[in-house]
Design a protein around this nucleic acid. Structure first.
Lengths: 239, 239
DNA sequence: CGTCATGTTGAATATCATCAACCACGGTGG
DNA sequence: CCACCGTGGTTGATGATATTCAACATGACG
């Protein structure tokens, strides 16, 4: 099992990988661990590497000068981190570990040097980046609905689907983030989140105990439009 | 002037392009015109090509089954379209021309085939995609602020900056979208947009006549955090 | 000239934010 | 073991803000 295959599996891509005689590209990939609460990178730092989440939960945050912050995404297993840094050669948001994490690093510049040209890996990065955009768009789609309960319900549906995609339970899970983070992500206050969760619970749709969520009526939690499903047809590289 | 250089200029990237003896890659790029109101692609259609906007204004829209829609972005000159389609091999949103448009097409699959491997172009796509993510994140950042006038003000600041980046006036411009579209993008109703613009006008910060905007006190319109500036340091390919 | 889409403005209502009190849990230290 | 404290979470009362519904104005277009 090469690390390239690891990456491939993480991204849930069914590439037919060519056997690799030259072990050298493996050196590009390394694992790196972070403790809960640690920052992976901060806004403004020089961009050096992309990350792919092996396990753990994180959040990416945008801060303005007045100190208010907005949560942009909650990356988890298989998600790509740091792609927004390519353009200006600096990371443009903060990324912080919500739990202990294990990340795979991809040194971006070295990937582009002619010697490392690697069609499979490039395709994977394209796919991962594309998925990243789709996910963010999905996040924006969450605020289509005006009512706070609907937003929270969709958020739960989205999380449920993401866990399912990874093979975990779709009905019982622990939220890794605080009410404040959820609120910041959904454009609501933490009190409104709490109230919405309570409302959904008394309606019998979910049960809530702090971060412990049980989905009782999944059919009533509607996914946001265009939630990224698995790819339907891959471009398999010629054998 | 090759079309590759066109693309390069459009993306405002200061690559040092290697002179190209083989003219064949040029065939990959074609221009395509659209009339105002036409759809470039619709959600669910098979993904075939990426587009780069040469001129004109567009909007990308997410629709759910109930028919409500959310505007995700307002692409303009130099912006990349369709990148979100790579992952599932289908476009995941609708894109519609707000004005007459001229787009450059980039057939994605052919770009990846070994014969067409092209470091410069790939770097450009990475950069454009990265910029795209940064722009979308910026859009999400618009809803950090609670007050509607602040959101509208930031939106205007963002548009102003985008026009400036293209060499147009930063103080006088025509908005290409309706109040409804602005509202959908900012998560507000069209009436609130109208009211907010009126408030900003009576405060002497702008003047408004339907879509004709004049910025009178630009220092009072604050840009959203991390608005994508021009790249600060490019990776020039080795000569 | 009439019609339609777009934009503006007003009044009433619903919804969310704010402020505040309280609870539950985990950790620390006596 | 228990008192203490801090963080995170819930719930209530109040007020600010945006939505809704509605009427009207304006410009584009046949």
């Amino acid at each position: 099992m090469t690390i390239l295959q690891d990456v491939c599996n993480l991204l849930r891509l069914n590439f037919a990988l060519k056997p690799r005689t030259k072990g050298e590209p493996e050196l590009l990939f390394q694992h790196r661990q972070f403790k809960a609460g640690e920052h992976i990178y901060r806004m403004g730092q020089p961009f050096t590497v992309l990350y792919i989440v092996q396990y753990g939960f994180l959040k990416t945050v945008l801060r303005n000068t007045e100190g208010d912050e907005r949560v942009l995404s909650f990356p988890m297993q298989g998600d790509l981190l740091g792609f927004d840094g390519i353009y200006r050669n600096r990371y443009t948001s903060d990324t912080e570990a919500l739990t202990d994490c294990d990340l795979i690093t991809l040194p971006f510049k070295q990937l582009l040097t002619p010697g490392h040209a690697n069609g499979e890996l490039e395709q994977m990065i394209y796919l991962a980046a594309s998925r990243e955009i789709a996910l963010e768009r999905c996040g924006m789609g969450l605020s289509i609905t005006v009512k706070s309960e609907a937003r929270v319900a969709r958020f739960l549906a989205m999380q449920s689907k993401r866990y399912t995609n990874l093979g975990y339970s779709s009905k019982n899970f622990l939220l890794p983030m605080t009410r404040r983070d959820m609120g910041s992500y959904l454009g609501l206050t933490l009190e409104t989140i709490s109230r919405s969760l309570s409302t959904l619970a008394t309606a019998g749709i979910i049960s809530v105990n702090r971060r412990d969520i049980h989905i009782l009526r999944p059919e009533l939690l509607i996914l946001p439009p265009n939630f990224p499903a698995l790819p339907e047809e891959m471009n398999k590289p010629a054998a």
